[in-house]
C-alpha cells in the first residue's frame, strides 16, 4: 500500500545542505498499524510528512495506493490529503477561534461540504466522548479532549491512511492509551493504515510493524 523507495530529503540552512533522510526504503501494507521510532532528529516526522504529501522528497519515490506522489500535481496532492489522509499531530493543531465541531469540519469548509458533514462530525465527537463539548473552543478543552477532537477530524473523512506524529507526546499515559485505542479501533473497523511516529514504545503491540530510523536510514 505504501511503498517508499530510496527516498532522500535534505533541507537548506543558508548555504549548508542538511541531509535528513539518506535513502530510505520500506513498505507498509494496507491495513497495517505501523510505528516509526528512533531518536530525535532521525527523520521520523519528515518521512511521515512525505508520505502525507505535505512535502516532496529530494530524490526517490513514494507510492501510495498505486500512485506515485511526485507525479501527482499540486491540486491532486491537496485532494489526496483532503480525502485519503488523516493527520493527528503532537500539539493537536486545532484552530483556536473555531469550536470543536468546526475544527472537525475544517477539511470540508473550502469545498462547501461542511454543512452536509455536520451530522457525521457530531456523531464522531460523540464516539470520542465529546458530545457535551461540541461548541467549546480548544482553550476550553483539556489536552486529551483536544487530541480527541483532532482524531475526530482525522476520522471524519474515513481516511485510508492515518498519519500520527507523536499523538501522545503532550498527554498523560491514560489519555495517551485512549488515543491509541481510538486509532486501533479505526484500523480494525475501517481497515485503515495507521502510521504513527512515537518515542514511547509502550504503545507498540504484537503484530505492529515497527520501522526504526537512525541517522536518516532504516536501522536493520
Amino acid at each position: 500500500m505504501i511503498n517508499v523507495e530510496n527516498v532522500t530529503k535534505s533541507f537548506r540552512r543558508g548555504d549548508t545542505e542538511i541531509p535528513v533522510l539518506r535513502g530510505i526504503s520500506c513498505e507498509i501494507p494496507r491495513g497495517a498499524f505501523a510505528f516509526i521510532v528512533g531518536p530525535s532528529g532521525s527523520g521520523k516526522s519528515t518521512l511521515l510528512y512525505l508520505i502525507g504529501a505535505l512535502d516532496e522528497p529530494t530524490s526517490g519515490e513514494i507510492h501510495v495506493a498505486g500512485r506515485r506522489l511526485d507525479e501527482v500535481d499540486q491540486a491532486g496532492r491537496d485532494a489526496f490529503r483532503r480525502t485519503e489522509i488523516g493527520f493527528v499531530f503532537q500539539s493537536f493543531n486545532l484552530l483556536s477561534n473555531l469550536s470543536a465541531l468546526d475544527n472537525v469540519l475544517i477539511p470540508y469548509m473550502p469545498i462547501g461540504e461542511a454543512a452536509r458533514r455536520r451530522g457525521d462530525a457530531i456523531e464522531l465527537l460523540k464516539q470520542v466522548g465529546l458530545e457535551h463539548r461540541l461548541d467549546h473552543r480548544p482553550a476550553q478543552l483539556s489536552g486529551g479532549e483536544q487530541q480527541r477532537v483532532a482524531i475526530a477530524r482525522a476520522l471524519l473523512k474515513q481516511p485510508s491512511i492515518v498519519l500520527a506524529d507523536e499523538p501522545t507526546g503532550e498527554l498523560d499515559s491514560e489519555n495517551g492509551a485512549e488515543v491509541y485505542r481510538y486509532l486501533r479501533r479505526l484500523q480494525q473497523e475501517q481497515n485503515s493504515t495507521v502510521v504513527s511516529v512515537t518515542h514511547d514504545r509502550s504503545y507498540i503491540q504484537e503484530g505492529d510493524l515497527v520501522l526504526e530510523i537512525r541517522d536518516g536510514r532504516i536501522a536493520e
Partner: peptide
C-alpha cells in the same frame, strides 16, 4: 503560519488559503 499549515495538511489548497 501554523494555522495555514494545519489547513494545508487538511486538504486546503493554496488557492483556498489565498481565498481565505
Amino acid at each position: 503560519r501554523i494555522e495555514f499549515g494545519i489547513l494545508r495538511a487538511n486538504g486546503w489548497s493554496r488557492g483556498h488559503v489565498l481565498s481565505l
